[in-house]
Simulated assay, not measured.
Amino acid sequence: MHARALAATTTALLGTAAFLLPPSDVRADEDGKQPTVIAHRGASAYAPENTLAAVDKAAELGIDWVENDVQRTKDGELVVLHDDNLRRTTDVEEVFPDRAPWKVRDFTSAEIARLDAGSWFGHAYADARVPTLKQYVRRVEVHHQKLLLEIKNPDLYPGIEGQALKVLGNEGWLDRRHLAGRLIVQSFNAASVRAVHELKPGVKTGFLGTPPVADLSAYAAFADQINPSYGSLSKGYVSAVHAFTGPHGRPLEVFTWTVDTAATARLVAGYGVDGVITNKPDVVRAALRGF
């Protein structure tokens, strides 16, 4: 995730009635539960980000939650990739030298499947590929993990919210068991978060950013979480977020990103955050153990 210009605040209240979910297992609360640790793009300090290998590494480390990013190809396939450009994490410039500027939306899923998405990280990962969303959620399911899915650049991909929900539904991720504690969909774009909530009110949602406290009541109509970068946080802000009730009748939560040191993990835990998104989930988990 990058700190970036946020979408305009959505202020209209939602009229759709939402049903109450069973108690979530991801809230750090007065019962003394430590913040949830979420592996950012998988365990991306130890395996190439957003690949199946990064999911596997998170599972190997015993991390339940993984975060990923979703983009859309030229032929309409959803793929798991952070950037809207293929250059940074694949060998696209070598395989398709005449296809600059190498945007995801300009390549078919078959073309992207040819790319090496691991060698940039290390020779041992030369066989890694850019997974489709379907492949990714199946691997998460194999490990009985939980998914924090980020919709990237929804302005580039009209209708991506409904398409992502369709993939999740087809893969069994919209049943009550998953909705109760195994799935969250987030975005930097408030309209995108609201679209997910309107399409599937049972899905837990998060807004990436740090809205002014005065605007939190509007976000609480469609977002269950406010998820800021750790550098923008304070204990007072976290308390302010927790004071609002989200669309499923529970206090808003805070997942913060991207925390990679023990000191920062303890700092944000002291603020009362509910989750910590990290490239180094083992480091953060050790720092928070017994917190």
Rank of each mutant, 00 (worst) to 15 (best):
Q186K: 04
S192R: 06
R285E: 10
E253V: 10
H242M: 02
A117T: 01
W257I: 03
K152L: 10
L199Q: 07
L115Q: 03
R266W: 09
F19A: 08
S239Q: 15
G236Q: 11
T36H: 02
A286Q: 14
G231I: 11
Q186G: 05
P35Y: 13
H178V: 03
R250G: 05
A53N: 04
V276K: 13
K57H: 09
A262K: 03
L133T: 08
G62L: 14
A221E: 09
L21N: 03
R114I: 00
Y230L: 11
Q163E: 15
A286E: 14
N279W: 12
E30P: 00
L13R: 14
V254G: 08
T36E: 07
V80F: 05
E30K: 11
G122R: 03
P212G: 10
V130K: 02
L147K: 12
P101Q: 02
D91W: 11
Y157L: 07
D56A: 15
R138C: 07
W102Q: 01
Y271S: 04
D282Y: 05
D29N: 13
P251E: 13
H178W: 15
A100Y: 00
A113C: 02
L81H: 04
L208E: 13
G202Q: 14
N279V: 04
T89F: 00
R138M: 05
L86G: 05
K166V: 13
V55K: 01
P22C: 08
I277H: 11
G42Y: 09
D98G: 00
L156R: 15
P35R: 09
T256A: 04
D69T: 08
A39T: 13
T205C: 11
K204F: 08
A223G: 03
L20S: 10
H2A: 10
P158Q: 13
V196M: 12
E49W: 05
A263G: 04
A243R: 12
A164T: 10
H144K: 14
A221S: 13
A190G: 05
K33V: 06
L183P: 08
D260S: 13
V55N: 01
S187A: 06
R114M: 09
E93R: 05
L21M: 07
T9P: 11
A53W: 02
A7W: 00
A195K: 07
F121L: 03
A54I: 06
Y157K: 02
P228I: 11
D215V: 05
D56V: 01
G15T: 07
K33H: 10
F291E: 14
F222D: 08
R250H: 06
P211N: 13
V203W: 15
W65G: 01
D155M: 08
P48G: 08
D260Y: 11
A39W: 08
L6M: 09
R41E: 09
G42M: 12
G122H: 09
L6P: 01
A269D: 05
H143V: 09
K134M: 06
F222S: 03
A191M: 06
T10P: 00
A218N: 12
Y230N: 11
L61D: 12
H248R: 13
G169N: 15
N189T: 14
I160A: 11
E111Y: 01
R129E: 00
D116N: 07
K57S: 04
E150S: 06
H40T: 03
